[in-house]
Design a protein around this nucleic acid. Sequence first.
DNA 1: TATTGTGAAAGGGTTCACAGCG
DNA 2: CGCTGTGAACCCTTTCACAATA
Lengths: 215, 215
Amino acid sequence: MPARKISDSTVRRLSHYLRILEVLEADGRTTVSSDDLAERGGMTPAQVRKDLSHFGSFGKRGLGYPVPVLRGRIADILGLGREWSVCLVGAGRLGAALYQYDGFRRQGFRFVAVFDNDPAKIGRRWGAVTIDDVADVARVAREREVEIGIVVTPAEGAQEAADRLAEAGVEAILNFAPRKLSVPPEVALRDVNLVIELEGLSFAVTHRGKILASR
Amino acid sequence: MPARKISDSTVRRLSHYLRILEVLEADGRTTVSSDDLAERGGMTPAQVRKDLSHFGSFGKRGLGYPVPVLRGRIADILGLGREWSVCLVGAGRLGAALYQYDGFRRQGFRFVAVFDNDPAKIGRRWGAVTIDDVADVARVAREREVEIGIVVTPAEGAQEAADRLAEAGVEAILNFAPRKLSVPPEVALRDVNLVIELEGLSFAVTHRGKILASR
DNA sequence: TATTGTGAAAGGGTTCACAGCG
DNA sequence: CGCTGTGAACCCTTTCACAATA
């Protein structure tokens, strides 16, 4: 559908719109204007309209956008009209938190495999899933048709995890390890680096007000 | 020091440079070129030089940048030349994972308070810290001079958590709750939304190759 | 009349290319 | 000679402003 490359920021905002629309729909709202959406999401109305216009014309002039229709369309655009098979490489505390995180389930992301390299963990069960050996990622992930892998290992094991996920034919990797991963071009990659987020705040606080004060 | 507003992307890359320089320094490397830094960080050499040039001239032409000096300067620029007092609002699984995360400690972020609204958790100890009632955030965070608050509550409690943190004089908030928070302008805010990251990958995989195929 | 959809303008980050310098 | 530092060019995203229209 999109005729041109869609920017990352636009995709992120689509997720935000979806979240807002879910609430509006639960409240029984039938229409919403770009002004209202922008207000609730902390963006500008023009941005909302421009973002949506990349995918079609969903609104009615003078009226706004139909809430349930738009919610459904954005979910489809984001690829949420189906379930996704996800695996976790790293069964530490962060992995456990993600595994149990309800927000993933709610959008159709299902964990079908969990891996770790700790012999004490391998063989243990997390709900319906048994923890497998990291050494078996390539085989098991392929068998279970994993589409998205989440890397939650320490920095050291992350590249190997990514290599094996790629080998298994996984289509996307979400990386929480604090290092740059190299993946084949056909694998989509996103990084979440928690330390970098805190450092960003540390920077902001440290330089608060100094920006104009310095000249 | 920065004469002009520094972009968010530049600040993020500074964190990346720091991570790389820490490794280089541990390896005993004394100098590094912008080419090398860029290569390791997945950026372009021009970007490395431009980023650094906002804060001064740290390199020697013909030689490159002195590793230990640059590492120290970037750490200072990011505000990491000191310890930061951090608190956690929400003592769930994700909160626990962050609390124990070694990467935070290593950069000088110290947890001095943890809050929850679950009576079963209040009063329990996490290492040296006793879990306090969310109702006491404003008082306790002020007493312990918390500078950065991390919100890891469900969406419902997040705005209240943010309000109380702001009331306590906290300077920055890192928000993991999946909703937009309103904070006073003097409070720095960053959002980490895990569902949005997965949805971004879902979008990428769903539209893989369709970008040019559609016209 | 209210609000969308969208070209055009503005803004801001990235890349280029080269002068400057160790 | 090699590599930095940086103004200028480029490119992409955001904002503006208004014609189109339910």
